[in-house]
């Protein structure tokens, strides 16, 4: 979480919630809501591509949790930031003043949203821990005999193309955005050892039985859904089940035809290039894409790569072609 001050040994540091939301201390409740909404849209884990979006979103949520509530905001405002920072700097860590919450009723735990695991130690030192984020009976899912089934979790994971190609057992670290009993976003980082089935494709989901939220009153646990994405591969691009490879070829290989080596995820294969192939030609290797009931194909796109004309012999060869071949590459442009 974005802390503005150095952590102390005890770990609790003062957090400037106004600074987190980018507003001054005297703004109206409406202004605070606007600032929060702006940040939420910018850093929402479903929408944002920024690398630290989840942390920023969490920080904004925590700040908004305090500042949207007139009582909590008033209590928070009673803490002198300079004094809080000074006590942190003395090494004792932040301690709320003894009577800082006098006249307010929220002390001793309980706040409207969020998961205690999700808010900072600073927040907890002020407002206590929230209710344990169990599955929400309040949300009104139909009841089942023998307790209520836990909710499902959804997380996005990136895997290597090779793992999908062959199937593999991998440790996956999940940073799952999720909603708790009060419906606020929470985050949980977990590492699971998962057997990835062969042939899974980007955009597909994997289901892990019983790895969601625990059930209530003896109900079974929910499931974990993993949305699969592939890490960028240095050679292959992915289009559904098909793989696309840019294959560099020499001008004479393209002109005269040749059999060249081409990489595939299963190892190199021999690829026959027909004579008079031009740059951009797509050659299909049937069934060499991602495996499955209908395996994908691998397309090799020819990229003609010129030998550099940086010595006498090479230059002489290019000059001979220029002299002897009547060739205008721009004929189609009418020039």
């Amino acid at each position: 979480m974005a802390g503005h001050f150095d952590s102390t040994e005890t770990g609790v540091e003062y957090k400037d919630y106004y600074k987190t939301l980018g507003v001054s201390r005297d703004v109206s409740a409406d202004e605070i809501k606007r600032a929060y909404r702006r940040l939420a849209r910018k850093y929402h884990p479903d929408v944002s591509k920024e690398p630290d979006a989840a942390d920023k979103f969490r920080a904004a949520n925590e700040a908004y949790e305090v500042l949207k509530d007139p009582e909590k905001r008033a209590a928070y405002d009673r803490i002198d930031p300079d004094e809080a920072r000074a006590s942190g700097a003395r090494g004792g860590g932040f301690q709320p003043p003894p009577d800082w919450d006098r006249g307010f009723e929220f002390h001793g735990g309980g706040y409207t949203g969020g998961d205690s695991a999700d808010f900072s130690d600073f927040f907890e030192s002020l407002f206590g821990r929230g209710f344990a984020g169990g599955p929400g009976a309040a949300a009104g899912g139909p009841r089942q005999r023998g307790g209520m089934r836990g909710r499902d979790h959804v997380a996005r994971v990136e895997i290597d193309l090779e793992d999908a190609f062959t199937g593999a057992t991998r440790d996956l670290t999940l940073n799952a955005p999720d909603t708790d009993a009060q419906g606020r976003v929470t985050h949980r980082e977990r590492t699971l050892r998962v057997r990835i089935p062969k042939g899974v494709r980007a955009g597909q989901q994997l289901r892990l039985s019983g790895q969601g939220m625990p059930g209530m009153a003896g109900g079974e646990a929910g499931d974990l859904y993993l949305e699969i994405a592939f890490r960028a591969h240095p050679h292959f691009r992915v289009d559904g089940a098909d793989l696309i490879l840019d294959l560099p070829v020499a001008p004479w290989e393209a002109a005269l035809g040749a059999t060249v080596k081409a990489p595939t995820p299963a190892g190199p294969v021999d690829l026959r290039i027909p004579p008079n192939s031009n740059g951009g030609r797509r050659l299909r290797l049937k069934g060499r894409g991602l495996p499955g009931a209908t395996p994908g194909d691998l397309y090799a796109v020819l990229r003609i790569t010129l030998p550099p004309a940086d010595d006498e012999a090479a230059r002489a060869l290019y000059e001979r072609m220029a002299d002897e071949l009547a060739f205008n590459p721009r004929a189609r442009l009418g020039v």
């Binding site: 980082e189 977990r190 050892r193 998962v194 057997r195 089935p197 994997l206 289901r207």
Partner: peptide, 15 residues
């Protein structure tokens, strides 16, 4: 962060 890597979990593609 919790680690739960003692057991290998089997994942099924959601069709």
């Amino acid at each position: 962060m919790s680690r739960d890597t003692d057991t290998v979990l089997t994942a099924y593609v959601v069709e």
